[in-house]
Every structure is written in C-alpha cells, then in structure tokens.
Design a protein around this nucleic acid. Sequence first.
DNA 1: TTGTAAGCGTTATCAG
DNA 2: CTGATAACGCTTACAA
Lengths: 334, 334
Amino acid sequence: MRVSIKDIAEAAGVSHSTVSRALSDSPLVKAETKARIRRLAQEMGYTPDAIARSLVTQRTQTIGIVVTTITDPFVAEVVQGIEDMAHEHGYSVILASSAAEPERELAAVEMLRAKRVDGVVVTSSRVGALYLAHLERIGVPVVLVNNHNQQSGRYTFSVSVDNQHGGHLATAHLIRRGHRRIAYVSGPANHSDDAGRLAGYRRALEEAGLPFEAALVVPGNGRLDGGERALYVLKDLDTPPTAVFCYNDMTAIGLLSAARRLGIQVPRELAVVGFDDIPLAAHVCPPLTTIAQPQREMGRLAMGMVFDLMTADEAGGGFSDVTVEGKLVVRETT
Amino acid sequence: MRVSIKDIAEAAGVSHSTVSRALSDSPLVKAETKARIRRLAQEMGYTPDAIARSLVTQRTQTIGIVVTTITDPFVAEVVQGIEDMAHEHGYSVILASSAAEPERELAAVEMLRAKRVDGVVVTSSRVGALYLAHLERIGVPVVLVNNHNQQSGRYTFSVSVDNQHGGHLATAHLIRRGHRRIAYVSGPANHSDDAGRLAGYRRALEEAGLPFEAALVVPGNGRLDGGERALYVLKDLDTPPTAVFCYNDMTAIGLLSAARRLGIQVPRELAVVGFDDIPLAAHVCPPLTTIAQPQREMGRLAMGMVFDLMTADEAGGGFSDVTVEGKLVVRETT
DNA sequence: TTGTAAGCGTTATCAG
DNA sequence: CTGATAACGCTTACAA
C-alpha cells in the first residue's frame, strides 16, 4: 500500500491538512512539527501523488510532444532539447508518435487532451498542419517546431529555421562551385518545410540566371530510402545533374550510399548538400556539406516558449514566432 | 471551460452517473438514452478527464520509459518499438532521460513514481543497475532492455541481446578473416552490456589460441567521439591491431571517420565490426559489418512483458527474462 | 434502468 | 498555527 498524507497525519497525530502544509513548506506550520512530519514522511517512504494533486491544481506539470517518429535523428535532437528544458523546470514529457497515420495523429491529440497536459510541442509531424484546430481545442499553449502554421493563434506559435534562406544558401553554394545543373530531392509530401527549401532553391537558380527544370526536382521522403531511390531516378535523366540539394541529411546520406554502390564519385561527379546537420553528418563519408540547424536549441526554445505562454496566460501579447537561420557547413561532398 | 460529465448530465436531464455509464458503454443504460447522451457529449466537445479517472481507478494507462539519451539511434529504435506497442494497447508513454547524471536518474524514478505510471521500461541507462531498488519501490512491473539485473524480482525482468554470443560472433568473424591482433573499444564505463561483449571477445580469442592483450582493449563511451579517440590511441600502439571490434555502431562509425581522416584504409589496413545494426550502419562508408539486434522488436517485447506482468499481477509465476541472439551482418568493413 | 452517495489523494478556504 | 470541510471529475457500490 502506498502511504498517503492521511497515513502520515495519523502517525504524526495531526490533521492531513497540516501534513499537506508541512510537505509544501508552508510558513503556516510550526517549524518543529514541520520537521517531525517531514522526517516521518521520509521514513514512511512517502511520495506525493501527482494525479491527485493535478486534479485539484488543474495543472499536470506535463507537456506533450508529438512527432512523426522518434527514430529520425533530427527529431531525436529536438526532443532531447525539449526534455532537457522541461526537466529543468520540473516538468515531464509525454511522447506521442503519429507515424504519419491520420488515425494515430488524431489519437495523439485526443490523448494529450485527456491527459491534461499543460502545453504541447509538435515537431516534424503533419499534426501541426492538419490538426491545429484540434490542438487548439486543448486550450493550452502549442508551439510548432519547423511546422508552418498559417497564422499564429492566441496560444499557438512556432519556432522554425528559415527554410528558404537555407535552401538558398545550399543552392548558391553549389552554384559558386560551378554547378549549373542542380537537382532537388524533396521531403515528405505536403510538408511545409519542403516548400520553403524548394523556394530557396528556385530563388538561387533565378538569381544566377539558371533555368528551373521540373525534371530536376525528384520526390524523396525525408528518409534514407527516399534518398537512395532519388539517385536512381536522377542518374537515368537524359542529362543528369552534377549536384543535388537534399531536403535533409537522411535523404542525402541515403543518396550518398546509393552513389557509392553505383560507383558515382562524390563530389567529383556529383556534389551533394544536405540539411539539418545531424550528429552523423560529419561522420559519413565523404563528410556531408549541409545547412546546420541548432536542433537542441530549437527544442529548448520551443519548450521555453510554451512556458512563457503558460505564465503569460491572459496577459496576452508580446509573443511572436521565432525563426532561426541555418548555417552552411562546408565539408567534403561539395 | 472544459465540459464534464456533470454538464452533459444537466443538458441531458439525467444524473452524472448515467452519463458515466453511457459513455463507458455500460449495458445498464437504455439504448435510447445512451445514444442521446453520446450525441450530446459529442456535440458539447467532451473529452474524458484521464486524471480524474486515474484517481479512482488507480491506473494511469501510462508507462514510463527511462533512457540515457534519446539521441542514441539504438535507444530511439527501442523507444519507438515501445511506443508502438503501447499505443496499440491504448497506453501512452512518459519519457525521461537520465543523461547519466545521478541527480537526474534519481529524479526520473521519483517522477515516475509520483506520476503513478502503470509500468516502466528502462533501456541503455544505468538506472536499471543503480536504482533497481528505487524502481521496485514504485510497485509496478519493470522491464530492463539490455540492462543486466542480477536477479529478476517479482516484477522485474529483462529482455536483452546475448552480449557474449554477439561479441564472440564478431571476434570469431575477424579471426576467420585472418586477423590475429584484434582490439576492442569498450562502451560506457560499468555498463553491463560492455562486460558481456568483452567476454565474448575474450572467449573467441581463447578458442583461437590467441593471447589476450590488455593494451588492445581501449576505452570508448558508446558515442561517436569515443570511437574517434579510440583510434588515435590504437594507432599509436607499438604494434597496432589489424582489426577492431567496437562496443556499438556509433563507436564504430566514429572510429571509421577518424580512420578516413588519418588515411587508414578500411578494411585493408584495419577491419572493423560494430554492434547494434542501427539504420545508418548500412549507409556509412564503407558499409559497416556489425552484430544486428532486433531493436524495435526488443522494445515491443519489453512493452509486452510489462503488460503481461501487469495483468498476471498476483497470479505470479511463469515469467522469465528473455534473451535474443544477435546476428552477424557482413558488409564492407571486414 | 436510473439516481444517490461515497471515495480516490490532494489543495485550499474557512474558522478557530 | 491547526483542524474541519469542501472541492477537483470521475467510477462504482448501493438504493430505488
């Protein structure tokens, strides 16, 4: 049997309210009895019941995280950033992965609502785009990481990398290296980040007076296999590209590994640039040139924003989306 | 304001208990009123309050996961397996990372206890080894993934890969390839998996009549940087090894990337074998030979075991630790 | 078939 | 300073 404040009260010969006060270090209780109660609680192995506490305080000290899958290294870094900051503030996190399945995405949102989380952060998931309304119904702050939201709501903001800027950075770098036929391997369908990166790519081409060729934009999925497959379609083009900008590092790494299998020399025959700068990017071979995003920091920022929104509450105002700029990290694939 | 069953009761002109029954599809309520109530609940945007429910049912439909860091690809896969299976059973997961900091490890356990999780699974964390007693105090099933536990408790079991077998597999493979000086780069200090893998390594050497040389066992940490550093110490040995078996894939990949920097040809000058077979192992270059563990499956197994333990409850008996065997996957680093 | 009432473990508001 | 007492939103006997 778990021991409750009632048990302690009995053992200490006081009322349960006094125990509650003593345990929360209220100044309303005599130092002496407080000490006695605390010692007793310790001895009896008492742990407060967060569930009961939440029922009355109406706060769970828990925030929800929704992701597509935690196995994506980018996501894992962001989640770690969130978790770190949450822990520093005494909060714990409930993790829900949506697997990009509509049924599961909706279930995740409902679950977070039922579990009464105090805030939620969504990253790399369609949930931010598709279920924003549901999310807002929860009535708690929501912050999206790299998920475009048309308009910030009262409690809904986002922290994102400047995708267009990053796409431009990557493509311009390739152009400076003398490439004229540059392909783009896209990310998961309908993902807002993808549109931005593509836009940056197009803008860079335009600025350089290079034509945009639809055939040079091939579909990927943000994962290793998507990158591999993309290379197979690119190599069969009438005039294959001499460089590729990939939606993210996983795509680029998949493509790199296909290149190796096909005997395509990187960067001599094909230059490649990724996006994210996941920890492994520097360790594949050749080491990957990429656009670095401060992944952990973005997680921390998002979590911090949720906290700010939680306390600001009715105070309103003063909030805005934050966007960080990616940095070009030149390694050996370009 | 959130709508509660009381609000629905009022709107429907029935008592709140009838609403509760209707919503839980109790046969004790007339089909007609049941339908009316459910429609009303729907219209009013009702979501049950899991907190309140938990307080009375004494179950939270939540399980705790403790890891060192979610950014380790092996951990991420296991966690995904756990989350998948949990979701299939209507459970959600609360994630706690310990960062291998004693303060945080203890905090994680206390938090899970306070939040009244129905079960916990620990993976790649010292928590299983160091805080087993605390963990058991929570009074719920605990399953450790790749964490040695001296003796299975009443509710404490583990699912692990056969480390010794895996270590033997890796080393024997290297020996068959003709290597005589084989190094081992170890994992995080005091990690039980490490001991097993090392034992397998030693046994393979022994069987082949090769001497064990302490100098050939160099410390790593299970991460990329540990692998990199390890190679720097290995290459400075009087007689450097011609092959290395690494604690895990991350270590091996770090080592591979250092090799590239140092101009050491793999596998010609140095063969390397990893452990885990993380998704990226096949995509580094050269593609990594490794010992594959069914990571997701292990996560699912662990979660399933927690469920079984939860329901078996007092029934007791019939449970035992499960150990799976790793498989040698030969790629191009050997 | 439905309603009343108790209780889950806390915190919080009153009185004393 | 301390003790009753009332919530918090739900489930579940026990009555009707």
